[in-house]
Every structure is written in structure tokens, then in C-alpha cells.
């Protein structure tokens, strides 16, 4: 068994520098479309048409993005020859949910620096869960930041919920939330938990996790990469500011910068 000790030591430190420094390793994030200023209304119309989930909206001569609905299908970027949305390689996507923005001020008082996490799969496709699971791998190692999973909701500070909340998971989700002691926070991971994604609302799935339990922080993405979920956890303990761009308004200065 000593082999394993040496193997571990030989592997060296793989852990990301985030959150001290940004991590720009290729492949850590699929990126996402950015609100785009366009020359003509016809071009905007074209982008709106290309988006199968109604995540692109017309706004001030450009196309604004509703990240709660975007599922990274890349169609606004790839499918038209004549026009495409801008694409940004980012991952700090977490933000306070609309309902919780007012309560954001006391989020920092609620917790110390360590968080115990409970995860509920409320009908997720497996990708969000896989990305959350990566937080335990040596690259992200959320343990170093004081985040760990707990085997019981009684010890949990944070409820991570993924999926469009399928019919049969509404009850277990509510029970898990009720079993957690106060103060507690809920982080909704992924487009499904925020907007129902490609599944909800329907007879079998909700329009968002917020229909079942109060949601404090949302992490857009389909799925959000591990660093985005890490950003959400850091946001809850106020070690990182929220993304200001959940539904991104057109900012002409963005284009001017490049």
C-alpha cells in the first residue's frame, strides 16, 4: 500500500489558484453568450430566432441574454453565417436570486468561513451533479476552503439543488429543507433549477426550484462548471462578489474595450 503514498506525492499539487487568482486553464468552462450590440434590428431578430430556449431578448438595438434560460446550445454562436452572439470565457456566474437580493446584506452575518453542504438531485440530468462532484477532485478541492458535504441535513448550512424539481422530488426536497437548522441558504445550480431548463414547467417538472423552497443564490449554466459552483459557495460566505450580469443589459462600453 505504500505505493499509493508515493504515487500521491509524485503527482504533486494540482489544485487551482482560484479564488486567489483567476484560473484560465483551457477547458474549465464552456463559456456563455454575451449580450451583443448589433447593427440592425433584423440581426437581433435572427439571434432571437436561433435561440431555442427564449434566452435571448431584444434590448436597445442589441440582444440581451437571460442566463437563467441559456443552456449552452451554441446555436446563437454557430448556426448563422451572417450574425453571431459574442462569446465570453468566464465562470464567475453566481448571483443572488431576485427574491433574495434584499436579504443579501445579512448573508455574511449568517455564517463563519466554513460551510456544510447538502446536495439534493431534484431531477437533474447528471451533468450538474457531476460538476458539483468535481469540487472534491484535487483540481478544485473545496475542502481547502472550508466547504464539505455532510451526511445529514441536520448539520447542513447550505442546500445545493440541481434539476427542474420533478414531481416525485418536490416532497423530499421540501423535507430536506425543513430538516436543516436555521440559518440556512439554498443555492440553485443550473438552468433547470432556475427556469425549468428544457424540461419545465410541465406536468412532471417545475418552472424552478423556487416554486418549492426559497432560493438565495443561483448559478446559471447547463451545467455550470465546477468553478462557477465554487463561486456560488464563496458568494454565500461573502468572499467573492456576485456576478452583476444575470440578465445582462447592453453595455456599449463592453465592445469598446476590445
Amino acid at each position: 500500500m505504500t505505493n499509493w503514498v508515493f504515487k500521491g506525492l509524485r503527482t504533486g499539487i494540482k489544485t487551482t489558484a482560484y479564488p486567489v487568482r483567476q484560473d484560465d486553464t483551457p477547458g474549465v468552462s464552456p463559456g456563455r453568450p454575451r449580450a451583443t450590440l448589433l447593427d440592425s434590428a433584423a440581426e437581433v431578430e435572427r439571434l432571437v430566432e436561433l435561440c431555442p430556449t427564449q434566452a435571448i431578448e431584444r434590448q436597445d438595438g442589441g440582444a440581451a441574454i437571460d442566463y437563467g434560460r441559456c443552456v449552452h446550445c451554441f446555436r446563437c454562436w454557430r448556426d448563422a453565417d451572417d450574425v453571431s452572439a459574442d462569446w465570453e470565457r468566464s465562470y464567475e456566474w453566481a448571483a443572488y436570486s431576485a427574491d433574495s437580493a434584499a436579504a443579501a446584506q445579512d448573508l455574511e452575518k449568517a455564517f463563519g468561513r466554513s460551510l456544510h453542504i447538502r446536495f439534493v438531485d431534484a431531477g437533474a440530468c447528471g451533468a450538474c451533479m457531476s460538476e458539483a462532484r468535481q469540487l472534491n477532485n484535487p483540481y478544485y478541492n473545496m475542502h481547502r476552503l472550508g466547504f464539505c458535504t455532510t451526511p445529514t441535513p441536520r448539520n447542513a448550512d447550505i442546500l445545493l439543488v440541481a434539476g427542474p424539481v420533478s414531481d416525485a422530488m418536490r416532497f423530499p426536497l421540501r423535507k430536506t429543507y425543513e430538516a436543516m437548522p436555521k440559518p440556512k441558504r439554498v443555492v440553485a445550480i443550473g438552468a433547470c433549477a432556475i427556469s425549468g431548463g428544457v424540461f419545465g414547467p410541465s406536468f412532471a417538472a417545475s418552472a424552478s426550484a423556487a416554486e418549492t423552497i426559497p432560493v438565495d443564490v443561483i448559478v446559471p449554466g447547463c451545467p455550470p462548471p465546477p468553478l462557477a459552483i465554487l463561486h456560488a459557495l464563496l458568494l454565500v460566505v461573502k468572499r467573492k462578489p456576485p456576478s452583476d450580469r444575470i440578465s445582462l443589459p447592453i453595455d456599449p462600453t463592453e465592445d469598446a474595450k476590445e
Partner: peptide, 25 residues
């Protein structure tokens, strides 16, 4: 840990090749 490193490397590789870690789209 070793297997998880391999998994994450393959996710990153998928993202580099096809722009999405799970090959969506």
C-alpha cells in the same frame, strides 16, 4: 484522486475539442 484527475482532464479535453465539457450542442 488519480481517477478523478483523469476524469477532469477528459472533461477539459472535451471542452477544448467541442467547446462543452459534456459535449452538449
Amino acid at each position: 484522486s488519480q481517477a478523478a484527475l483523469i476524469e477532469e482532464d477528459l472533461l477539459r479535453l472535451s471542452c477544448k475539442v467541442a467547446e462543452h465539457r459534456y459535449l452538449f450542442g
